[in-house]
Design a protein around this nucleic acid. Sequence first.
DNA 1: AAGTGGTCTAGACCACTTC
DNA 2: AAGTGGTCTAGACCACTTC
Lengths: 238, 238
Amino acid sequence: MHKYEQVVRGIKQGIDSGEYPAGDLLPPAQKLCERYDVSKITIKRALDQMELEGLITRRKGSGAYVKTPVPAQKGLDKEVSADMLGFYAQQTELGKTVRTDVVDFDVASPPKSVAQSLTMENDEFAYYICRVRIADGTPWTIEYTYMPIKLFPDLRRHDAEVSLFSYINERTDYTIASSHRTIRAVKPTPEECRLLDVADDEPLLEIEQIVYFDDGRPFQYTRQRHAHGAEFVSVGLK
Amino acid sequence: MHKYEQVVRGIKQGIDSGEYPAGDLLPPAQKLCERYDVSKITIKRALDQMELEGLITRRKGSGAYVKTPVPAQKGLDKEVSADMLGFYAQQTELGKTVRTDVVDFDVASPPKSVAQSLTMENDEFAYYICRVRIADGTPWTIEYTYMPIKLFPDLRRHDAEVSLFSYINERTDYTIASSHRTIRAVKPTPEECRLLDVADDEPLLEIEQIVYFDDGRPFQYTRQRHAHGAEFVSVGLK
DNA sequence: AAGTGGTCTAGACCACTTC
DNA sequence: AAGTGGTCTAGACCACTTC
C-alpha cells in the first residue's frame, strides 16, 4: 500500500466519522503533511484521487472542500459501474447470485465497423458471443461480444459461461486496462423482449464498449443492453 | 500556459502527425524530458492527463503506448459531452444554431428528493425551469431544472433563455466545478412527445445531474431527456 | 500581508519489464 | 543486468484567496 493510498483512506475515514463535515474545508496541506508524516506532493496525489472520485472539490488559494454527498443511490443494485469490472465481479460484489446464459458462441466474420474498432484485417475471424446475464433470477442484461480469435486461440464456451474478464486475468498474460464507452437509449428487439422478459415498449440502456489492453490494443467489442431501469453513474469535472 | 500543457500539446501533435503511430510506445520519459526541457514529473503530469482523456495507456516497467483510436464518432453532433459544458456552449462549439424555448419559469417548493440533493430546508424555495433545447431547428432535449433562489436572488426568465451557465460565470462570483450524473433510458411522457416531436415509443436518454460549485455546495438539480439517438461518451480506466 | 494550493525541479529508491 | 515508469522527498516559486 502506497503512502498516498493510506492518506486517502485516512481522510475518507475523517469524512465518514464527521471529523470533516460536508461543506467544510479539509485541514491545509501543511497540517495533513504533519498528521500523516508525508510530503506536500503526496497529499496532493491523495487529494487528486479523491477529487476524481467526486468526494472533494478544490479552490485555488483556499483549500479542499468536502462535497455534499449525493443522496444514497436508490437503485444501487441497478447501477452499471463506471469502472472496469465485468458483470460477474460487479454483481457478486453486491452479494447477488449470478447466472449467465450463453445464447450464442460462434466464430464469425465481424461486421465491418466492429472489425475496424478492433483493428482486424478483412478476412480475420472473431468469436461472437451472445449472453444473457441473470442476477437473483431476473434477466438484467443482454450482451453481444466480439473478440479476435488471434488474441485468444483457446477460448471456449465454458469461459463465456463464467466470466470473460476472469478468463483474461487468470488464464492469459494480458492486462485489461481501459475502455471507451458510448451510451444511448434503445428499443428492445422482439427477441430481446423474450430473453429479458420485458414489454416491447420498455426502453433499454445500451452501452457500446471497446476494451483495451495495457499496451493500447483493443481486444473486445461489446454491446450491452440493460433492462429494468439500469443506471450508469459518472462524475464530471471542470 | 503551464509546461505540462505544452508537453501534452506537443505529444498530441506527434500522434496526429504519425510520428507516434497507434500501438507504438512513446519515447521513454527521459527522452521526453530532454526534448521538452522539463523534469520527469512534468512529463508524468502530462501523460496522466492524456491517459485520462483515453489517448494512451501505460505499462509499469515498459512505457506509454499510443492507443488505437476509437473510429470517428458517427454521431458527434448527437453526442452529450462528458465534461462540464452547458448545452449552449456545447452546441455552438459544433457550429449549430441554437434556440431555447422556456416552457416554464417559476418559483416553487421543490420535491423532497430534490431539496435533499440541494441541501435545502423544508420551507425554502427554488426556481423551477423547464426548457426545450433546439439546435438547427430540431428539438433535441427537454430539461427540468431546480436552483435555490437563496443562491441566485436575481435570476430572470431571460437568463434561462440564453444559458444558465453563462449567467453564473459572467454575472455571479460562483465557480462551477463538478457534477454527479445518473444516466438511464426512459419513455417519453405525452407532453414530451409533443414538445420534442417524437413518437411515443421512442426511448429517451435521461441524464439526472447535480452540479456543484468549487466550494463543494450543490447549486443545481437538472433532469435532461435527450431525443433522436443522443449519445453519452465516457472513458473507463483501471 | 499572510495563508493557501499548483507547478516545477533534481534526485533517491523501488518494482516491473526486457533481454 | 539494464531500462523503464511510479512514488516520494525538500524546497523554490508563483497565483490566488483571505483578512
